[in-house]
Design a protein around this nucleic acid. Structure first.
Lengths: 402, 402
DNA sequence: ACTAATTTGTAAACCGCCATGACGAAATAG
DNA sequence: CTATTTCGTCATGGCGGTTTACAAATTAGT
């Protein structure tokens, strides 16, 4: 598959395709898919008025999409309006499916999502992967993928792509894990290890989490900052409905924004980086806890019980986050900041000091901070949905493979 | 003219036009213009191979562009290659011109730039505008514009648009100055005051400066951070060849990134903002100088003479800039950082400490920092060129007005 | 010098895609 | 039960790029 990566710029149906009539047709097919997908069942006439084509043109586009199994005719609408009722069109629930997979530090998960966005199959395996060599882990993952694909196929779906979320840095080829500190993996070519003919994409779990927020979040805007803490503290920058990746793919390293220029030294070479104040280790240390398994759950539990040491540590972390985010917000002027991943669970204790800091340092109304309701499912869903989006963005490409 | 503002997303010829055959034609006209403009004189065949259309198609496109006066046929090429030589095409030097204007704190300037990028007419008026009410200033500006337009017309050009750079915040309508502290203007509708029928755009001078760097800089990449200090310290974020403006148009406020969380209070409400260390006033104070006219020139002069107080102040400013930029670079992973505007002149004394700070705080190779060679001309040229780019981006629109 | 090969630009025929306009179908309004 | 409205489709047409063919202009080779 040619780059289903959701970059910042070719967002949505405005993809760059050769400007010939075929390209035009492809883009218009995409626009039909997007409008039906976004606005529920729609008649041909409704689609036409939305995307600015004539009913006749939309008719032929829809015909093609139905023939290739991407759209379905639900039958006549029954509205109270005058005139002949339209025939409702919906995105197919029996066509291509996006397979999402997640390699977590202590679990593996796979799911299949249909074009309607429904999760139709899933499989999970708990157990630590930390320190395991890639081969057995990916072998297990392959098994889960097979099970999920088989289940999806029983429901009439076929896998259009496989997207894998990993807790680490991924090379620009979207196949190789450059470095995954929490797994102790380096330069691992997932593509080579995963025996499947489904088109594969690999990306950072934080990126997929942010995309999930963008696509699935309830009132998520087009431009926001998605902050998560899995490996270090990462901020995915979403601009105009796309992810900003940076020239080397390193964008979003909020964890190494200086918060206190002469603060404690950081492995990155800097001093007083955010991670020295709000990173997992730093917070555990400040709370007087030992690093271990499920550290985030531990923190949340203690905080909920009222442990003042933990709460104080989280307050300080929130403050540091607020300072770093002030800088980011000043630079990017996003519509909102969303706390996701592990931070979502700790939000109740982070938010007050975080928002206070942001507020006090901002002239005028401060940037609103919200908490993701996707929770730990974000990256997995984002991965699966990235495949679905790729199909919506270029249905013709997928039709050829069907 | 509908929004010739160069936003981050619809960058270059990939503008969003209705996906009908006419839109296709318009986009292809734009692609021809862009390729001829970017790669010097080109034959039809060369253009065709570059933009991926057939020679026949390009022929008709070129015909249309020649008819409307946007392209010129220079005559046969004389290359040493086999085969019939092509006929060289160049962007017209007698068609539309972009009129750029700048309202500075102590000068007014206007220039006309043809499609080839050549400055064909200019007018300047020195003298302080600080504290003057908008009406007389803009009346004077109007006079300069008229003179420049008249001179351009004598050379066979016609004004396709007028872009005005102002030292202040501009509303999203691209006509009204919300606040220009150094001029003491507020909510000034430039469009209403400037009696001309040339399509008008108003934008911040820092934005135009960054765009100038993007379009005219020698080896400027597609993604960079352009830092300038005119009113406060601003960083224009250029992503994929477009300006990132933020939801409210406030993006790039580097001046209020926290550098020392408990540093001196800033009028913005924060503490230890970059401006408290590297802002004009702060540097002058640290150098033991009085604020006055041409403060930047004064600083540069003293520093060049070897004044250690001044040099020390600039060293400290560079350090603070380095800290703030570390954050920005971590967040955005740009290809480079460019110092422009007033900072360009002070670069020799800012750079060492700035780069040292950036280097020391970055793991791996630090983001390269360069200095704009456009100097104080940047905003004016950027303004004029923004009109030229708008013509290249949609030649059909301008052909209708010709 | 003369032919072969190569490349350019254009013209004619063709195909694909959307717009236009007309029509039958299916609902509501009176 | 008729007039009106809206939907989906069909036939026609225009527009835009491609394909194919060809003349023009140059270099390479003998």
């Amino acid at each position: 598959m040619t780059a289903p990566l959701h970059e910042a710029h070719p967002a949505g149906p405005g993809r760059v395709l050769p400007d010939t009539q075929q390209g035009m047709r492809r883009r218009n097919l995409a626009r039909v898919m997007h409008s039906v997908s976004a606005e529920g069942p729609l008649s041909r006439a409704a689609v036409a008025s939305r995307i600015g084509l004539t009913r006749a043109a939309v008719s032929t586009l829809v015909d093609e999409l139905i023939r290739t199994g991407l759209l379905e005719e639900l039958g006549p609408e029954r509205p109270g309006r005058v005139g002949r009722p339209g025939s409702a069109l919906a995105v197919s629930g029996h066509g291509p499916a996006g397979i999402g997979a997640e390699i977590g530090v202590d679990h593996l998960a796979v799911c299949a999502v249909d074009l309607r966005g429904q999760v139709r199959a899933r499989a999970v395996r708990h157990g630590a992967n930390r320190g395991c060599s890639p081969e057995p882990v990916i072998e297990e993952l392959t098994g889960l993928v097979r099970r999920v694909v088989a289940e999806a196929e029983r429901e009439g779906l076929w896998p259009a792509g496989l997207a894998v979320a990993v807790p680490g840095l991924v090379a620009r080829d979207a196949r190789t894990v450059v470095r995954a500190p929490n797994l102790d993996w380096r330069d691992t070519d997932i593509g080579a290890l995963l025996p499947t003919d489904i088109p594969l994409t690999v990306d950072n779990e934080a990126n997929f989490g942010a995309l999930a927020e963008l696509w699935l979040g309830e009132r998520t805007p087009h431009d926001f900052l998605h902050v998560s803490a899995e490996i270090g503290i990462g901020a995915a920058v979403v601009v105009a409905g796309g992810l900003l990746r940076g020239t080397r793919g390193f964008a979003g390293e909020l964890g190494h924004v200086p918060v206190q220029p002469e603060g404690p030294a950081c492995p990155c070479g800097g001093r007083g980086c955010l991670e020295q104040y709000a990173g997992e280790e730093a917070v555990l240390r400040a709370a007087g806890l030992e690093p271990g398994e499920d550290r985030v759950g531990l923190l949340a539990g203690r905080a909920a019980e009222g442990d003042e040491d933990v709460r104080g540590a989280l307050r300080e972390a929130g403050k540091a986050l607020g300072i770093a985010l002030t800088g980011a917000v000043n630079l990017l002027d996003p519509e909102s900041v969303v706390l996701g991943g592990a931070l979502a669970g700790l939000a109740p204790w982070l938010l007050p000091s975080l928002e206070a800091e942001l507020d006090r340092r901002t002239a005028g109304p401060a940037c609103p901070v919200s908490v993701s309701r996707l929770g730990p499912e974000g990256p997995l869903l984002g991965a699966a949905h990235s495949v679905v989006r790729a199909v919506l963005d270029d249905p013709a490409a997928v039709a050829e493979r069907a």
